[in-house]
Each structure stands twice: as C-alpha cells, then as structure tokens.
Simulated assay, not measured.
Amino acid sequence: MGISRTGLGLGLLAASALVAGHGVLAQQLPSECRTTALRQCLLSADRQLCVLGAMQGMPDSCRKAISARAASRAGALPAGWREDAYGPDPLQKVDWVAPPGVRKAPLVLFVHGGGWSIGDKRMDAGKKGAHFVGEGWAFASANYRLVPQATVEQQAQDVASAIAWARRQPDVDPDRIVLMGHSAGAHLAALVGTDPTYLKAAGVPLSAVQGVVLLDGAGYDVAQQMAAPRNPVQSMYVQAFGSDRARQEALSPTRHAAAPNASNWLILPVERRADSVAQSQELAAKLKAAGATVQVVPQPAKTHMTLNRELGDAGDPSTVVVDRFLAGLR
C-alpha cells in the first residue's frame, strides 16, 4: 500500500503530537498549522494516515513545530544518559549511554526518521538504549541538521561526524560500531555505509562500521522511489532530493553498492510494503555481489511505525532478529 512509505513515520510523529486535542493544538502550534484538514484529522478513525495527508500541504515551519512538540513529549534523558555535541550546530548532538563498568563497549548508533525534514533523537530511543545496554552494547541516538536548512549530503556527513565523535569516547570501542536507522534514517545509514565519501571526510575508516541495520528504509534507490506513481510524500522527496536525476542517483545507496561497503548488513523491511521489500532486496543483491554479508528479513505483523517503536520490547520478534545479528558480530 503506497501510503505507508517514509511519511508514515512522519504521520506517527504528527499524530502523537496532535492527540492532545483541539485546545492544545490551538495554543502550541503556529497559526499556519491550524488548518481545517488537520482539525478534521482529530476526528478521524485513523489519525496517522489523515495527518500524513494533511501535512503535505503545510509549510516546513509547521511540520517542524509538530515534530518539536512530539519530541518534547519524550521527556528528560533517563538516568545515566548523556547529551554531547559532535559539531557546532544545535542539532549536531547525540544522546547516549554505555554499560556501567565496561570500557570499550561496542556501540549501536541510531539515526531517526522523519522524511529528512523533521524528527528527533529522543523519539523511542530510551527503551532501545536500555535493551542494548543490557546486551552489553553502548547506545547513541543522533540528531542531524534538517532539510531544507541543510542538504541530504550534509545530513549524511552529520551521521559520519557522529561516528567520528563516538570513536573518540573512552567507553566506546572505536572499531566496533553498528549503524542503525529507521525510515529516512535508514536511507542515511545505508548511504554512509555504501558511499565512502562521508566517512573519509570525517576521518573514519570504513572498517570501523562493523555492521549496518536498516529498519523499513526509505528510498535506497531515490530516483526509482520518486518515479513511483503512488508516492504520498512526493513533496518531501522533492524538497530533499530536488528534480536533478543525477543528484538523486548520487544520493541512492543502491547506486553505490559496488565495493567498498560496510561488510555486514541486516535489512528489515515491513513485509506488507511491496516497495520497501523490493528496494531492500535490490540493495541486498548488489551488496552481496560486491562481497558484503547481507540478510533481508521482511517483518510480518509490523507497520512502518511499530517496527521502530517496539524495537527493544521484551519478546519483540524484530528485536530477536537484531540481537542475533549483533551477537554474530562479537
């Protein structure tokens, strides 16, 4: 179903931000956000899909205001976590936690989604961190600069810079880093894991990225995704990637999958999303042809939202798959 692409994660952020109701909506969002379509979504049986459609016609300032409000609901950092900067911009920060008493722990670095234009490191990060720390991993969730104030190229460079920051931390093993991303964050993780330009500019050897985990990624082949006849978030793709096909291809991980690449990959598309499964399999085939080890494991009974939101829950089947992959790297 086409409606479940990248923007469904965006719809989740928006729906969670708006669920408080009309009064709070009127008080906390800019006037340009308070459209009739958005108000009607509060009465819809499926707020998330309704908000997704309504947000397509909103200005970027409105989408960012909704994202900021959703992030604020995540609350303060849990005990033992730290927030550090990896660059001078206010968005170039990570929240992170390391297993107590462990020196040189391997690290999972998570990259959030949000259509390249919204999202925040605090969304759904706390339980992921608690879970992976329990498995002996350090965990970091990174913010990055957002479109349109930044380009996708700059976002990928931010991810690489966050890896460079992580390698300088005494609690982190600099050569055992796993890059994980959801939705647009999966696209950025895949791009950094396939195009060596970004890590090289950050002074990071490709071998330091021991593995890459992609959660229902968005646009591994950007040009192909933008050409799809039913892309409900086409305006966000245009804002992020523009109309220049050469640039779209340059920002497509599948187009960079010839060696060198990160050596180990786990790709988890949502089973019901034909486009996500197809793009995952195409990326995997090219990575395998270049010598990488790749698993594609479509996730049944998951949506674009729940795959990310439930990761780290006790008994969650997707978490079991990720844990098995990570254990194989140690």
Rank of each mutant, 00 (worst) to 15 (best):
L8A: 15
A259S: 13
P99D: 09
P90C: 08
L29Y: 01
I177V: 10
A15F: 05
L49H: 13
M236R: 12
V152N: 03
Q40I: 04
P88I: 09
D316F: 00
E271W: 03
G115N: 11
C41H: 00
W96E: 06
A125I: 04
L8Y: 08
K288M: 11
A290G: 11
R145Y: 04
W116K: 00
D120Q: 05
P300Y: 10
S141T: 13
R47K: 13
L107G: 01
P88L: 15
H182N: 15
A278C: 08
Q92P: 07
S263W: 15
K200S: 14
A246W: 06
Q154D: 07
G87N: 02
L109V: 04
P88G: 06
A130Y: 04
A98V: 11
Q279K: 09
F132A: 02
D46N: 12
L29C: 02
G328T: 01
A250F: 03
A189G: 07
D89Y: 03
V297N: 14
A20F: 12
G119I: 01
V233C: 08
M236W: 15
L215M: 05
S161Q: 11
S183W: 14
Q149F: 07
L251D: 05
L146T: 05
G53W: 00
H182S: 09
V233F: 06
G113W: 06
R63Q: 10
G101K: 04
M226S: 05
L251K: 10
S44M: 07
G9V: 03
E135R: 13
Y144F: 11
V320C: 00
A202P: 00
V297W: 03
S4R: 15
L42I: 01
P90W: 05
L38Q: 00
A15W: 02
A162G: 13
S61A: 11
L307E: 02
L38I: 00
H182R: 06
C41L: 02
K302W: 05
G211H: 13
L188F: 09
L52D: 02
V297S: 13
F110M: 11
E282P: 05
K104T: 10
Q56H: 07
L43I: 11
L268R: 03
F325P: 02
Q155K: 03
W81D: 02
A259M: 14
W265R: 11
M58W: 10
A105S: 09
D323A: 04
V294C: 06
A54C: 03
G291E: 09
Q248M: 14
S141M: 10
A314W: 07
Y198S: 07
A79F: 01
Q154F: 09
G219E: 04
A257C: 14
L206Y: 08
K64A: 07
V147P: 10
I3K: 10
V321P: 01
A184V: 11
Q224M: 09
Q210M: 14
L12T: 14
Y220P: 00
L8H: 13
A289D: 15
G193D: 12
A150C: 11
E271Q: 15
M58D: 07
D313S: 05
L43Y: 14
V296Y: 04
P300F: 06
V294P: 09
R145C: 08
E83P: 05
P174D: 01
R73S: 13
T254V: 15
K127D: 15
A54K: 05
P317A: 01
E249K: 14
P174I: 00
D275Q: 15
L12G: 12
A14D: 01
D313P: 02
G75I: 06
K64M: 07
K93I: 12
M236Y: 14
